[in-house]
Write a protein that binds this DNA or RNA. Sequence first.
DNA 1: TATATTTGCATCGTGCACGATATAAACGCA
DNA 2: TGCGTTTATATCGTGCACGATGCAAATATA
Lengths: 154, 154
Amino acid sequence: MDDTQLQLSSQVCFPLYSASRLITKAYKPFLDEMGITYPQYLVLMVLWEKDGLTVNQISEKLLLNTNTISPLLKRMEKLDILQRNRSAEDERSVIIQLKEKGKQLKDQAKPIPDQLLKILLNDNIELSEVLQLKEMLNHWIQILTENNKNKIEK
Amino acid sequence: MDDTQLQLSSQVCFPLYSASRLITKAYKPFLDEMGITYPQYLVLMVLWEKDGLTVNQISEKLLLNTNTISPLLKRMEKLDILQRNRSAEDERSVIIQLKEKGKQLKDQAKPIPDQLLKILLNDNIELSEVLQLKEMLNHWIQILTENNKNKIEK
DNA sequence: TATATTTGCATCGTGCACGATATAAACGCA
DNA sequence: TGCGTTTATATCGTGCACGATGCAAATATA
């Protein structure tokens, strides 16, 4: 009986899982200096692009459930990075707005993308490979989110 | 000032992080039936390939620290999937061995890789794309683990 | 051989992820 | 208007991840 398929090296999921963890770890020194974690950095990137979003809007952009985002935002509020306020129009919604500290972190974050690219490019990875990987992954994400929606509808 | 680099869509790390979570979620229905989690499935794949490894050997194969693996293995011992025994030659080491239940789970797991491939292939992803992605990710993992080692040595 | 260092594993604390559940506001409709 | 349903968020429980720390066995070194 052929068991090669059940070997770690044959699965595409394991490299995906490991690469994700390792690259998050590569961000860590930079984020440590800013006093935030990687998921918190993701929230900031969303808010830097458009401030004043609801919890739900942020969770949709990050493909994370609100039960992950909710406590995360509370921690960021405690860090004085943002504030949470109930919406006046819809009392159910909570509007997230950057505070001064959250806005200032943007300047500190500016060099991060370049420095991370450097880590990869310095070691025989072509920029085209980075872009290709990104494109492929986005395609997969599209498929896998569709796949998820179908399951929920059933 | 150009902020495009700080946009979520420009970062390669976010698709990696999302795709990893989404594909793990795609495994979930199959693993639920087996009564295990995705990291536990990874441990099993390692042990199915070679039984009787130490905690350290497993952690190296999975690129996870022992402080993640240790409690994970304890939970699997409680599930009667494996047993943990101190090595006779080196009292510091703990040998992990599959129990009957752990061995039987292999049969149940056999169809999983194919079924996951189907989810991807059914939606316009070529097998060649899967293989290409795997290859690229493995290259990245190699670079990022090297990068990590260098940091530790410093 | 005594002591310092390394190694293998475990424990602790914190922060995600996420399924399940709760709760209150908003909405739909008879 | 009244009431069932949907929607937005929060809470709870469990299982990772992982840095920091602890501890005992093995090894290296003076």
